[in-house]
């Protein structure tokens, strides 16, 4: 076969990109297992195995080469993101269904790697929280359950767990504010809350931040999306908080709670479903942050990032089209 220039290639691959992202998730996972519950490791294993099996079967059915596509590790990354979004003690079958939806419906029915318009992990999260709202809202208190109990809950032991589980910080805050005349300040006195946001979750955010910095330094992602996401989230939270600190949580609380850090570095930055131009990335991530705040604060669900991501996924084609950067020589800069 004749090949044409260039005859040299950078030693890089999709597999390497995905592997870098997986490695960047490790600090976060370590903090998660230490601060919140080692059950996450079981969930990660269940999700990964399901994802690989589903990917293999679908590729076989589609008549595509199986091994190279599994080797690119994209299915494992999707699985990990799903597991990290789900409650630590979510029963195994919920994780499994979610992964199957992500891999089969969201990824492969749209044409496989690189072709899906929606973020697979986020579609999985949204479908599960709509289908099983209560199971998806039961979180163990951070570090409050021993590994055996977590394992029992995940693998389908006793589900009478209201006594031992609770809502996330965001959920508790929202329910608390809706239930009566309490203020943010008094709710934050509860045991679910730590110094900044949910107890233990602040550390998790730090873990993800470390991974995110790794991704930035390895140039897997650019600064645009994380910065736009976090700045927009902080800005809008500050505005509401300044107007009424009794009814709205502080920007720090919003940054440290829920999946803000995970989303900033690992979810909005999904290249396949996100905007691609520099300006487009800023608009996309800012849009996600804005919608996420509104859903968190005024919506019916405890965490709004997943819905916000999907809504912004819809806007990607027009964002990209309208934010094309000026081409060399067409910038209208220095002219003769």
């Amino acid at each position: 076969m004749t090949t044409f220039s260039p005859y040299i290639r950078k030693p890089t691959s999709v597999r390497q990109v995905m592997l870098t992202v997986l490695i960047a998730l490790v600090p976060g996972i370590a903090v998660y297992a230490w601060q919140i519950g080692a059950g996450i490791l079981v969930n990660l294993a269940i999700a990964s195995l399901t994802a690989i099996a589903a990917e293999a079967v679908v590729l076989k059915l589609r008549g595509r080469p199986v091994l190279p596509a599994i080797g690119d590790l994209s299915a494992v990354l999707t699985a990990w993101l799903i597991a990290l979004c789900f409650p630590t003690i979510a029963p195994w079958w919920i994780t499994m269904i979610a992964v199957l939806i992500a891999i089969i419906v969201v990824k492969h029915l749209y044409g496989g790697l690189g072709q899906n318009p929606f973020n697979p992990a986020m579609v999985a999260y949204c479908s599960m929280i709509v289908a099983f709202p209560s199971l998806m809202s039961q979180w163990p208190p951070a570090g409050g359950l021993d590994f055996q109990t977590q394992l029992d809950l995940i693998l389908g032991g006793a589900r009478n767990i209201d006594a031992i589980t609770g809502a996330t910080a965001l959920d508790a805050l929202r329910t608390g504010l809706r239930s009566g005349e309490t203020t943010v300040g008094s709710i934050l006195q509860q045991s679910a809350f730590g110094a900044l946001g949910g107890r233990g979750w602040e550390w998790l955010g730090l873990g993800y931040l470390v991974g995110g910095i790794l991704l930035l330094s390895r140039r897997v992602i650019t600064w645009h999306m994380p910065v736009a996401f976090l700045v927009t989230l902080a800005t809008i939270a500050t505005l509401f908080w300044l107007v009424n600190p009794a009814k709205f949580a502080s920007p720090l609380f919003h940054l440290a709670s829920g999946g803000a850090m995970l989303a900033a570095f690992f979810i909005v930055t999904d290249p396949v479903t996100g905007a691609t131009t520099p300006r487009g990335k800023l608009i996309f991530a800012a849009g996600v942050a804005l919608l996420a705040y509104l859903i968190r604060t005024f919506g019916a669900f405890p965490e709004g990032i997943a819905f916000a991501v999907l809504l912004m996924n819809l806007c990607v084609p027009i964002i990209d089209m309208k934010s094309q950067p000026a081409v060399f020589g067409h910038k209208g800069g220095r002219q003769p």
């Binding site: 290639r9 190279p68 650019t222 290249p271 950067p325 060399f328 910038k331």
Partner: peptide, 23 residues
């Protein structure tokens, strides 16, 4: 010889490398 071609994942590495500011 270059490894087999895989689907584009829109990672924008190419856009970041393009000296003509193309996508």
């Amino acid at each position: 010889p270059p490894p087999p071609e895989l689907p584009c994942i829109r990672c924008t590495s190419c856009a970041r490398a393009c000296p003509a500011d193309l996508q």
